[in-house]
């Protein structure tokens, strides 16, 4: 459990957090070479605190992700606006000598889709999750963006489509279904009527759910300013339904329930037709991300990446069902 940054981290927390005495346990949860997530247990004023440390040892984590310090600013802004996010306890400073990152509360819940969709303890809450997602997205999308504009990029639908077109073109492995999807989307993925704070990866894995409901929205590294329909579409993307195709919202709910709760909680009323291009875009985007996995495999030989490369066909199947058959 010991890592070289524990001492400087403990010293920094002791300075900033009244009553903080020590880190009692630390388990590395995930992350690659550039970014780490740790579960920390700490003793503060005689009580046990459960914490998460997000850390990039050498600075910036990935070209598409926002810096961790920006992530912390967005999470705190969302929390102050009443959103369900963990409380940020401390943002590392350069002089702390522990890398870039921040410490936040570790909340209880489940993020694994198969458990949330199949296990009995979630049976009661499952039918209410679509509305819970609608309420939460309405809160996020209502956050005042003026102050955030200084730290977040604005990336709307047409910009994203052009970006993914460039990535796909660079792989030089054209596919007729993806070509069809680009052409279908170009006139339909329009610039937003109004720019909002967008989570950018609102789907299973990043939604902390307990038998009582949606506890928190995690993993804000892809957050940006853009089209609120992006988040509504991404949670409905077929790849995140895990076999429960007839329940478009994460495999647990109906789109009408998501949109109704969203409209009731916020000021925007969207229709299923408004969201549909973003659901289609979600499949195209994940399909191209599968192609990116193949590029990763070519450099590291990972069997896992190799098989994800072949999952591009799942997204092509979904694109055919949605574009040619009008399914959702």
């Amino acid at each position: 459990m010991k890592a070289e940054f524990f001492q400087p981290l403990s010293r920094a927390l002791a300075r900033a957090w009244p009553g903080f005495s020590q880190i009692t346990d630390a388990v590395r949860l995930s992350g690659g070479a550039s970014q780490e997530t740790w579960a920390l247990d700490a003793e503060v004023a005689g009580a046990a605190e459960r914490l998460i440390l997000r850390r990039a040892p050498g600075g910036h984590s990935s070209p598409t992700a926002v810096p961790l310090a920006t992530e912390a600013i967005v999470i705190e802004t969302v929390r102050e606006a009443g959103g369900k996010v963990p409380r940020v306890r401390y943002v590392l400073k350069e002089e702390d000598g522990a890398g870039q990152g921040y410490v936040m509360d570790r909340l209880e819940g489940e993020t694994i889709a198969r458990k949330i969709l199949r296990e009995d303890e979630f049976a009661v809450i499952r039918p209410q999750l679509a509305a819970a997602c609608g309420q939460e997205l309405a809160r996020i999308h209502r956050v005042e963006t003026r102050a955030l504009a200084a730290v977040l990029p604005t990336v709307d639908g047409p910009t994203q489509l052009a970006r993914y077109r460039a990535i796909y073109d660079a792989y030089d492995h054209p596919d007729p279904v993806f070509e069809m999807a680009f052409r279908w989307l170009e006139p339909r993925l329009k610039p937003p009527a109004e720019i909002a704070l967008v989570h950018g990866d609102f789907r299973h894995g990043n939604l902390l759910i307990s038998p009582l409901g949606l506890e928190a929205v995690l993993d804000w590294e892809l957050t940006h300013l853009g089209d609120p329909l992006e988040d509504l579409g991404w949670i409905c993307t077929r790849s995140w339904r895990f076999g429960v195709t007839a329940r478009p919202v994460g495999g647990f709910g109906q789109l009408a329930d998501l949109l109704k709760a969203y409209a009731t909680s916020g000021e925007r009323a969207f229709t299923i037709e408004d969201v549909k291009p973003w659901i289609v875009y979600g499949s195209l985007k994940w399909g191209i991300m599968c192609m990116t996995m193949y590029q990763g495999f070519r450099s590291d030989g990972s069997v896992e990446r190799a098989t994800i490369g072949r999952r591009a066909s799942e997204t092509q199947w979904d694109l055919v069902r949605m574009i040619l058959h009008g399914e959702l």
Partner: peptide, 21 residues
């Protein structure tokens, strides 16, 4: 084409019943 391809890559994927069109 995609029907043949998915039968090779992920034959279990097409089983889910779709939402109404």
């Amino acid at each position: 084409t995609i029907t043949d391809k998915i039968a090779i890559d992920q034959p279990g994927y097409t089983g889910g019943k779709a939402a109404g069109s």
